[in-house]
Design a protein around this nucleic acid. Structure first.
Lengths: 192, 192
DNA sequence: GAGATTTTGTAACTCTAGTTCAAGAAATTG
DNA sequence: CAATTTCTTGAACTAGAGTTACAAAATCTC
């Protein structure tokens, strides 16, 4: 009951995600959001309460969409090494193709907020946990098939790969040139 | 000629560094700076012109001081592997002991500004270049002594280690627990 | 010590961030 | 269609960010 919204909240969240992703939380102003979402200030606050809550929704949306490629790649058919290699390369290629140099919104959120905001902390840890678990699953499969050494600690290796993809993202932001990133996937996988 | 300053600019820059390091650029207000540096607003702006220029000086100061440990560790006596291991562990331990979870100011600067500010970009690249070069030097020494395989590409390996330390810093910010970080140095070095 | 110069402390200024509010418009219910 | 509810538009508000201005104070030169 009551008037129906003139806009699609999901679309609005997606556009908000773009803004926060590009400019960070502190770097995004209500005015930018109003312009980007194409709705009035009143509607913005009526629908989302505050910039902060909108940010949280945008970050969740990011987790649900942008991040899914990594999981798909890790779950794809193929040997363990192939899948890990494809996953790392996915991150490398994303960094290389990121003309705006926005990096990964999770990495950005972690750095901008970590330790200072429980809400963001929770989301960041959740996604890190999931990524780590996905890596670990592949590694254990590789150990089971004999493709990876039995002496390899799957938990350690998964944490290492999690660190690696975050490192790639930071380097990609700092210097978008392909020089450093090019062989990162191969080099990292020598550790396994 | 003229009145002499009541404060030591170097000390002021150091305190500013602490603020920016802890709160980021956008998260640090003139008032916080005034309080932390213990000087008046007038002196602040008279001495440093703007928040932005002070930030740049603070970041340079960081590069000159906090980062030097990494170079010292890499230049210390010992085998290549020992030195690389010690360097990675230095970063790991720094993350574990970082109760405030400020992370590394360079990593933070890269994520907050990269691609959006030429001044910060330049400083970040400079330090990344230096760190990479330092890693590379050790790796080449290791190759020369036969400790590391001749087939190892020193440039690729150095870029990989640069990514790794940045990854460690991001993980450390997100989750200060020792679980993930503990064996990262050993695991990463298996790649060499 | 006069004069020049620089620093200091504080007030003040402008601008915008982030949010709220009020009045009217659209939908829903019965 | 009346009653109710929710949404929209845009102005308006508060607080503080980032900076400047100015008079007073300190130092330096000669």
């Amino acid at each position: 009951m009551g008037r129906t919204k003139n806009f699609d909240p999901d679309v609005a969240v997606e556009r908000a995600m773009d803004q926060f992703w590009t400019n960070g939380y502190a770097g995004t102003t209500p005015q930018q959001l109003v312009d980007a979402l194409g709705i009035g200030r009143g509607s913005l606050y009526n629908a989302f309460e505050s910039k902060y809550k909108l940010y949280l929704r945008a970050l969740e949306h990011y987790l649900d969409t942008e991040n899914s490629q990594l999981f798909e790649t890790l779950d794809a058919p193929g040997s363990a090494r192939e899948r890990l290699h494809a996953a790392l390369n996915l991150v490398v290629e994303a960094a290389l193709n990121d003309k705006q140099r926005r990096g990964c919104m999770v990495t950005n959120a972690a750095v901008e907020f970590a330790g200072r905001d429980p809400g963001v902390d929770k989301l960041v840890r959740r996604i890190f946990d999931r990524q780590e678990a996905a890596f670990r699953g592949v590694i254990e499969a590789g150990k089971g098939s004999g493709e990876l050494g039995r002496d390899l600690d799957a938990a350690d290796a998964a944490a290492f790969l999690l660190a690696t993809i975050n490192g790639i993202r930071v380097l990609g932001k700092a210097d978008p040139g392909p020089r450093r990133l090019r062989h990162l996937a191969e080099t990292a996988l020598r550790a396994l």
